[in-house]
Amino acid sequence: MSLHKNRCLLYNQVVMPYSDALIWQRTLLEERIKNPSLEDVLILLEHPPVYTLGQGGKSEFLKFDQTNSMYEVHRVERGGEVTYHCPGQLVGYPILNLQRYRKDLHWYLRQLEEVLIRTLKIYGLQGERNPGFTGVWLEGCKVAAIGIKVSRWITMHGFALNVCPDMSGFERIVPCGIADKPVGSLTQWIPDISLLEVRSGVAKCFAEVFDVELVIQTPVD
């Protein structure tokens, strides 16, 4: 018998196009709005290069013409400004029914930060919160961005942790709308860090912070 209060289905995907992951998340969300007893889900994956803007995100934070662009850009229903995803960045999408945890969005954001801070601690790195901003910072560099959407207390979207990505994509935006603070990746501190290893660390810390039993699922095609 599990000692944890809830089970959470874990999907460890490889690289998945952003639009496919978005459809998947929306489907999982709608299913759980219709049937709140369905189990929670955590998706861990990477995306091909893509820019995303939050619902109220300002186009001025893109340093290129969105109407005539070679770059894939999506405006989506999460909070927050513009961010960049690419291989080497670990993206996590928790689809959680917060009625099982706490119906408090600030609490939920702090819990996501805590998952990433604990993950960094595995490597002897001191992740920090920055008052007034959402995300996780390491020696003044933002290494993880967080943006969520919640409907009927069920979450979608989530977090992005820069493990070993090509950081040049961030030069074409003002990341998260913050012009005066640099973004960083874990390779700056641990050059040979493995994304596969970080995946398992994030999953372990997620299970601890949310007190769930992770149940590994077969990746979807």
Results as ranks from 00 to 15, higher is better:
78 R>F: 12
192 D>C: 00
190 I>R: 01
102 R>P: 00
1 M>R: 11
149 K>F: 14
147 G>I: 15
203 A>N: 04
133 F>L: 15
127 G>K: 04
96 L>P: 03
184 G>H: 10
109 L>I: 15
59 S>L: 14
165 P>A: 11
34 K>W: 08
87 P>I: 09
46 E>S: 01
64 F>Y: 11
41 V>P: 00
165 P>C: 10
154 I>K: 01
92 G>D: 11
34 K>T: 12
214 L>S: 01
202 V>P: 00
106 H>I: 11
166 D>S: 05
58 K>Y: 10
123 Y>N: 04
7 R>W: 12
42 L>K: 01
197 E>N: 08
69 S>I: 15
43 I>Q: 08
5 K>Y: 12
173 I>S: 02
138 L>F: 07
33 I>M: 11
211 D>W: 12
11 Y>S: 02
60 E>M: 11
157 H>N: 04
142 K>C: 03
99 Q>S: 14
97 N>G: 08
131 P>V: 13
114 E>I: 06
204 K>G: 00
52 T>L: 06
79 G>P: 00
76 V>E: 07
137 W>N: 04
145 A>C: 10
42 L>F: 06
132 G>Y: 12
170 F>W: 07
126 Q>E: 15
103 K>F: 05
169 G>C: 09
187 T>W: 06
146 I>N: 04
129 R>A: 05
11 Y>R: 02
92 G>N: 07
115 V>P: 02
82 V>H: 03
151 S>R: 14
143 V>N: 06
